[in-house]
Simulated assay, not measured.
Amino acid sequence: MAVIKATDSDFNEVLNSNQKVVVKYYADWCGSCRLFAPKFKRMSDDESFANIAFVDVNAETSPEARKLAEVTNLPFFAVFKDGKLVDSVAASKEEAVLSLIHKLDV
């Protein structure tokens, strides 16, 4: 599944139209964010995560979406279930993000 790019204008719609969502918050200047992008894309293509929407949000241009997850650092990942925040982590390690995704009861 392709990674969905979301902004403040459509973020809530993305959350409400997908039961399980994992969001990567990034900034264009963030080197670790750029390095993690291919890993995030690979996760989104993983068959075992077929029922999860993978979403990219630019933390600098989408302050409302950033506030919903209480973003503290970048890259920052958050998982939402039924439109509600389940958990989040500021990390650049794939294992930390996979652990977060598993909180959605994959």
Rank of each mutant, 00 (worst) to 15 (best):
D8H: 01
V106Q: 11
L104D: 05
N51K: 11
V21P: 04
F11T: 00
C33K: 04
K81C: 01
D105C: 04
A37E: 14
D105K: 14
S92T: 10
I4N: 09
S99R: 12
S92Y: 15
V71C: 04
F80A: 05
L85A: 00
Y25L: 05
C33G: 05
E94S: 12
S17N: 15
Q19T: 14
E13P: 08
V23K: 02
N12V: 07
D8N: 02
A50I: 09
P63L: 05
L15H: 01
M1A: 15
D105F: 10
A78I: 03
A53S: 13
V57E: 01
D28N: 13
K67A: 15
K5D: 14
K5C: 09
K5A: 12
I4E: 13
D46R: 02
N51A: 11
A2H: 11
V22I: 12
N73Q: 11
Q19Y: 05
S9T: 15
N51C: 08
A37I: 04
K93H: 14
P63T: 01
A2F: 11
A90W: 09
D56H: 07
I101A: 08
A53M: 11
L68R: 12
F54Q: 02
G31S: 12
H102Q: 15
M1D: 12
L74P: 08
A37F: 01
I4K: 12
V86Y: 04
K67Q: 13
D10M: 08
A69K: 02
D82K: 07
E47Y: 11
V21D: 03
V71W: 02
A96S: 15
D28S: 13
V55P: 01
R34A: 13
M43L: 15
G31K: 06
P63C: 01
F11S: 02
S44F: 11
H102S: 14
K103S: 07
L35T: 13
K93M: 11
Y26A: 03
L74G: 05
L85R: 00
S32M: 10
L15F: 09
